[in-house]
Design a binder for these strands. Structure first.
Lengths: 205, 205
DNA sequence: TAGATTGTTAATCGATTAACAATC
DNA sequence: TAGATTGTTAATCGATTAACAATC
């Protein structure tokens, strides 16, 4: 029982708090309050305080939260007080864009392995990285002991890739294919599907 | 009162149901049940039935749901029984990838306008599309009467772009910049931030 | 008819909000 | 000290699940 069971939905909000705190720090602020932070992320002050208090007493009555301190605490909680290696499978437009994306670096991630199965892509370079053959994926990922992967292959291949990944060190998958993945317990999956998000909004148009 | 107020969270699940239904149809199925659909999307059968029943009685006791029929109904509810034009602002890696992304076409969307502010990009071609100057964005979008935009500019410019967009016909924004946008009532925003999703999962690693 | 599955109601569960004593 | 804001408890709100009559 070294870790109290925290609701998943609270964990999901921590990255948003962190994002806002980083921005406040960049603006030169040193201290914030649950009220201000709530306005930044669009969440009530009460909920901000309740969420944060799950992990300790990081604020001070009367003054609020020290931004650097809280930021450091949240990074520790989320295990991003380090740099995680990431593998990307599928070098189409999405995979290529993710490989070049500069937004990962200062948020705890670096892409170190990229894969495709197209003969004309295998062996080519994307920035510093060489595109590897998906056929060699399991071995290469295991050797590198990479824990995080992003799937950017067509929907009809995504489950097969996920199945392969479960034979590796990968324990967190960010899936860009518009399909739900079945994975064993202990492997975490998050989904990104822009069309789904757009369809959500068209209801209100 | 022509439209009963449906919880937003239910609306957000409809695109997932639709995605699964399309896939089932592609597999040659004609009929499904709340149980089967639930397994496809990872949601309980009871919830599937409850969600769908908000909009009408689309199933039959004993047999379940006709896939084509339900699919058509959901497309109607979500207003994607048509093709929506989409504008993309920012032609960096993300914007470029989204412009080329083939996954929008058969899900109700087509990218028709793209913008950047870099002189070397303005006037260049991406596929069929010419990159327009962000300075001309308000006029061009209004003339085309585009209702949906995706923001793919750096975080520190995203709010300014959103402010400009609120002067246009755009009423739905999909924001790829890692920052919350303030927009007036009646403008809808959804967020996509892969780093945030990854940070969510590292908690469990 | 017998079996299956819906639509819906009531019960349960969990998350959010309001309120306030503690205290910086 | 007076004002501000936390951490936490209790109240409220909303979402999910269980159960089952209706019926295909």
């Amino acid at each position: 029982m070294d870790k109290k069971k925290i609701p998943d939905i609270i964990i999901g909000r921590l990255p948003l708090y962190l994002r806002a705190l980083n921005r406040m720090a960049a603006n030169g602020s040193a201290v914030t309050s649950s009220k201000e932070l709530g306005e930044w992320v669009g969440i009530s002050a009460a909920q901000i305080r309740k969420d944060i208090s799950q992990f300790g007493e990081f604020g001070k009555q009367g003054t609020g939260y020290n931004i650097d301190f809280l930021s450091k605490k949240i990074r520790g909680i989320l295990n991003i007080d380090r740099i995680w290696d990431v593998a990307i499978i599928g070098m189409g437009d999405i995979g290529h864009g993710l490989t070049e994306y500069q937004g990962f670096r200062d948020r705890g991630f670096q892409v170190t392995l990229v894969f495709d199965n197209a003969p004309e892509k295998i062996g080519s370079k994307i920035g510093e990285l060489t595109v590897h053959n998906i056929a060699d994926m399991v071995d290469i990922i295991n050797t590198a002991d990479v824990k995080i992967a992003m799937i950017a292959v067509p929907a009809n291949h995504a489950q097969a890739i996920a199945d392969e990944l479960t034979k590796t060190s990968v324990k967190a998958i960010l899936n860009y294919a518009p399909i739900r993945l079945n994975v064993p317990d202990g492997v975490h999956v998050q989904y990104i599907d822009p069309a789904t998000r757009l369809q959500w909004m068209t209801y209100y148009l």
